[in-house]
């Protein structure tokens, strides 16, 4: 009962902390982008706007109000939604309202929701691959430690870790799609339309991301397992005649689960906010590519919305990881 109370308290504290962090992120992002030097209305509207449009933007952004009032207005939109008058009609932008895009006149929230399945497909598929590759390599490396095959494996993972994703992606794409023509150049097909084509087209982006990420997981798994393997209770298991396979696979791996969850949540969180490079390289119409587009045309509401959303995913993922971690290891609750 008391433990549960402790856990509930921990969960509450952690959630509150996440909300505060998120608010701080939104303040920083909002202030940085809207207090930037230059004519905000002109920047927001883009270089090709007519003076009338600029004026309308200035009105919608309430540029006469002080910055904090505008921020509160933005926050109000996120919590309660807004009504925008678009000249003749009134458009309702419901609850998590992040504003309107001045380039496409679309609601930022709608824009993001439309792109989310692409980024989600990319992130989740890559995650499955990097967990398989990374943890597998890590277990093998811990098991065969010090031998030649382990050293080669560790070298390969280090090389993977060190390479920027677009370099690996470019080389893979040119080699596999261009020279060998084993796969088509990736082109996003929605899962609901054709699951098989969806997977084939995403295979290369998944692989590129997984090759980069797997190294971190391999290193983490290896070091966590080695630490556990050196502990007394493992020696006891050995003395009792527990097989090496069971020790490595069952007991040593358990010690790596906590840190792995934390790392995975973190990576998944930041990927959901847009795998900017991977999506740009492979031309996948996801959140990351949307951001690049919004940045190029200086569509500030979209940029701010996307950066805040990315921060939201990171904070959410970290909070979830901490809670999972606390469920797995109750000692964290006490600290």
């Amino acid at each position: 009962m008391k433990a549960l109370h402790g856990f509930a308290g921990f969960a509450l504290r952690r959630t509150l902390g996440a909300v505060v962090t998120l608010l701080a992120i939104s303040v920083i992002v909002y202030v940085v982008f809207y207090a930037a030097p230059g004519d905000v209305a002109q920047i927001t509207c883009g270089p090709r706007c007519s003076p009338a449009q600029v004026h309308q933007v200035a009105e919608q952004l309430r540029l006469d109000d002080p910055l904090y009032v505008r921020y509160l207005h933005f926050l109000q939109g996120v919590v309660a939604g807004h009504d925008y008058s678009t000249g003749t009609s009134v458009e309702h932008c419901s609850a998590p309202c992040l504003g309107l895009s001045y380039q496409s006149d679309q609601q930022v929230t709608q824009l993001i929701l439309a792109k989310l399945p692409v980024t989600g497909s990319l992130a989740l598929g890559a995650m499955v691959l990097w967990l398989l590759l990374g943890v597998g390599t890590g277990v093998l490396a811990a098991w065969r430690r010090g031998r030649l095959d382990e050293r080669i494996l560790t070298g390969i993972t280090l090389a993977g870790w060190a390479t920027p994703v677009f370099v690996i992606g470019l080389l893979l794409m040119v080699l596999i799609c261009g020279q060998l023509q084993l796969l088509p150049f990736p082109q996003y097909v929605p899962f609901t339309e054709d699951p098989e084509q969806w997977a084939w087209n995403l295979l290369l982006p998944w692989l590129s991301l997984a090759l980069i990420e797997a190294a971190k997981y391999a290193r983490l798994t290896r070091s966590a397992m080695l630490e556990t393997l050196a502990e007394d209770h493992v020696r006891t298991f050995r003395a009792y005649g527990v097989g090496e396979r069971a020790i490595v696979g069952r007991h040593a791996l358990r010690g790596a689960v906590g840190p792995l969850i934390a790392l995975n949540a973190n990576d998944l969180g930041s990927l959901f906010g847009g795998a900017v490079l991977t999506e740009s390289l492979f031309g996948l119409p996801g959140i990351g590519r949307e951001l690049v587009h919004a940045v190029n045309v200086v569509d500030l509401p979209v940029v701010v919305g996307l950066v805040v959303l990315t921060g939201f995913f990171v904070v959410l993922a970290n909070a979830v990881a901490d809670l999972l971690y606390a469920v797995a290891d109750r000692r964290t609750v006490l600290s």
């Binding site: 505060v20 962090t21 701080a24 992120i25 920083i28 992002v29 940085v32 982008f33 930037a36 030097p37 230059g38 920047i43 930041s270 906010g273 847009g274 900017v276 490079l277 990351g288 951001l291 690049v292 940045v295 190029n296 200086v298 500030l300 940029v303 996307l306 950066v307 990315t310 921060g311 990171v314 904070v315 970290n318």
Partner: peptide
């Protein structure tokens, strides 16, 4: 420390991409 936590949570790629766009 809070401020540092927030900065750590900012996604490097997304943030720098966005920042580089608005600077004159």
């Amino acid at each position: 420390s809070r401020f540092t936590d927030v900065v750590v949570a900012l996604p490097l790629m997304v943030m720098s991409l966005a920042l580089l766009a608005i600077v004159p």
